[in-house]
């Protein structure tokens, strides 16, 4: 699960555009409860979407993450998006539940999520 967080975030950001992070990052904690890892991943991505939309910040590094007893905790670095150096393609409305899945593939865990734009 932890290994999926950063690639999934990059997938979300790729849908929005090319988001260039400023150098001044700060630590942020995320905490989610639930039994279904794919829904927890969706919840994490939804937090990132709001973080971008409301505060113009993006994830730059997952420092630590744990999925224990129906709880996902993430310690991560986020940084402001440099609006002038970034390119924006489209607005993402939401991360949907459609075809949401996490599975083990030959190269490690893979996740599928579909965004509404």
């Amino acid at each position: 699960m932890a290994e999926l967080l950063m690639p999934a975030a990059e997938g979300l950001y790729a849908a929005i555009g090319e988001l260039v992070a400023a150098s001044e990052a700060s630590l942020q904690h995320f905490d989610f409860q639930g039994d279904d890892p794919s829904i927890l991943l969706r919840d994490f991505l939804t937090e990132l979407l709001i973080l971008f939309e409301r505060d113009q910040r993006r994830l730059v590094e997952v420092v630590d993450a744990a999925f224990v007893e129906s709880r996902l905790t993430v310690k991560a670095k986020t940084a402001p998006v440099e609006l002038e150096r970034s390119a924006f393609h489209r607005e993402v409305k939401a991360i949907t539940y459609h075809e949401l899945s996490i599975r083990e593939g030959p190269g490690g865990y893979e996740a599928t999520f579909i965004v509404d734009i």
Partner: peptide, 17 residues
């Protein structure tokens, strides 16, 4: 609160897509 904060400065904006 999240819905309100997402809407606070978006009334009168076109969006994308």
């Amino acid at each position: 609160d999240r819905a309100l904060s997402r809407g606070s400065d978006q009334c009168g904006t076109l969006g994308s897509g």
